[in-house]
Structure formats: C-alpha cells, structure tokens
Measured scan of single mutants.
Amino acid sequence: KELVLALYDYQEKSPREVTMKKGDILTLLNSTNKDWWKVEVNGRQGAVPAAYVKKL
C-alpha cells in the first residue's frame, strides 16, 4: 500500500473528508482525482486536498 505525508494541518469540512495533522502518515487509497485524494487515517476514510500531502 502507498503512504503519503501530511504537509499541513487540514480540518474536515464535510463528512466525506478527514482531518489530518502536519506530519501524519496516511494510507493512500485513491489518487485519480488531481485535486482530492482518498486516504485512510486513524481508521477513517475520506478525502484530503492533494496539494496538502506528498507521496512517500
């Protein structure tokens, strides 16, 4: 499985998103959308802005 690093804090704004903190390591589930990537963090799945994460 592919991992990404959170470059910034992000507070979810809808139920389809997830909150992450700078430095979090997230499991990347889907990166086909260039703006929003689906990730899993702390057992929750949701979208985060692609510009806020970097593939490891």
Rank of each mutant, 00 (worst) to 15 (best):
K1C: 15
K1V: 14
K1N: 11
K1T: 12
K1E: 10
K1I: 13
K1G: 12
E2P: 11
E2A: 11
E2L: 12
E2M: 13
E2W: 13
E2S: 12
E2R: 12
L3C: 13
L3R: 10
L3H: 10
L3M: 12
L3G: 03
V4G: 14
V4N: 00
V4Q: 01
V4P: 00
V4W: 07
L5S: 05
L5W: 07
L5K: 07
L5R: 09
L5Q: 11
L5A: 06
L5N: 01
A6G: 04
A6Y: 02
A6R: 00
A6Q: 00
A6M: 03
A6S: 05
A6V: 10
A6P: 00
A6E: 01
A6N: 00
L7T: 05
L7P: 01
L7S: 02
L7N: 02
Y8M: 12
Y8W: 11
D9G: 06
D9S: 09
D9I: 03
D9W: 05
D9L: 02
Y10A: 00
Y10R: 03
Q11H: 13
Q11W: 13
Q11I: 14
Q11S: 11
E12N: 08
E12I: 06
E12T: 10
E12K: 14
E12F: 07
E12D: 05
K13G: 09
K13R: 14
K13F: 06
K13P: 05
K13S: 11
S14N: 13
S14V: 05
S14L: 07
P15A: 12
P15R: 09
P15Q: 10
R16Y: 14
R16T: 14
R16G: 15
R16V: 11
E17G: 14
E17C: 08
E17H: 08
E17F: 06
E17Q: 10
E17M: 05
E17D: 06
V18G: 02
V18I: 14
V18S: 02
T19D: 03
T19N: 06
M20D: 01
M20V: 10
M20I: 14
M20Y: 02
M20R: 01
M20C: 07
M20E: 01
K21Y: 10
K21A: 09
K21H: 11
K21G: 04
K21S: 09
K22C: 09
K22E: 07
K22I: 06
K22V: 08
K22D: 02
G23P: 00
G23D: 05
G23F: 04
G23T: 01
D24M: 13
D24S: 07
D24N: 06
D24R: 01
D24L: 04
D24K: 02
D24H: 05
D24W: 11
D24A: 07
I25A: 02
I25G: 00
L26A: 08
T27M: 12
T27K: 11
L28S: 01
L28P: 00
L28A: 02
L28C: 07
L28D: 00
L28R: 00
L29A: 03
L29I: 14
L29F: 05
L29D: 01
N30Y: 07
N30L: 08
N30G: 08
N30I: 08
S31D: 15
S31V: 08
T32G: 10
T32A: 13
T32Q: 12
N33I: 05
N33Q: 10
N33R: 09
N33T: 07
K34F: 08
K34Q: 12
K34E: 11
K34V: 10
K34L: 09
K34I: 10
D35A: 10
D35L: 13
D35S: 11
D35T: 13
D35H: 14
D35R: 13
D35E: 12
D35M: 12
D35N: 13
D35G: 10
W36Q: 02
W36F: 07
W36R: 03
W36D: 02
W36S: 03
W36L: 04
W37A: 04
W37C: 06
W37V: 08
K38A: 12
K38R: 13
K38Y: 15
K38D: 15
K38G: 08
K38E: 15
K38S: 13
K38N: 13
V39R: 00
V39Q: 00
V39G: 00
V39F: 01
V39N: 01
V39D: 01
V39T: 01
E40P: 00
E40H: 05
E40S: 09
E40L: 08
E40Q: 08
E40T: 06
E40W: 07
V41A: 12
V41T: 12
V41I: 15
V41R: 13
N42F: 08
N42I: 03
N42S: 09
N42D: 12
N42H: 09
N42C: 12
G43Q: 07
G43E: 06
G43Y: 04
G43V: 03
G43D: 07
G43H: 06
G43L: 05
R44M: 08
R44Y: 07
R44G: 04
R44E: 05
R44I: 09
Q45N: 07
Q45G: 07
Q45W: 08
Q45K: 11
Q45M: 10
G46D: 01
G46Q: 04
G46L: 10
G46W: 07
G46S: 03
A47E: 15
A47P: 03
A47I: 15
V48E: 00
V48C: 05
V48W: 03
P49G: 02
P49F: 05
P49M: 04
P49W: 04
A50P: 06
A50G: 04
A50K: 07
A51T: 12
A51N: 12
A51G: 12
A51L: 12
A51W: 10
Y52D: 03
Y52R: 05
Y52E: 03
Y52I: 07
V53H: 01
V53C: 14
V53K: 00
V53E: 02
K54H: 10
K54W: 09
K54P: 03
K54S: 11
K55S: 08
K55T: 09
L56H: 06
L56G: 03
L56I: 14
L56V: 10
L56N: 04
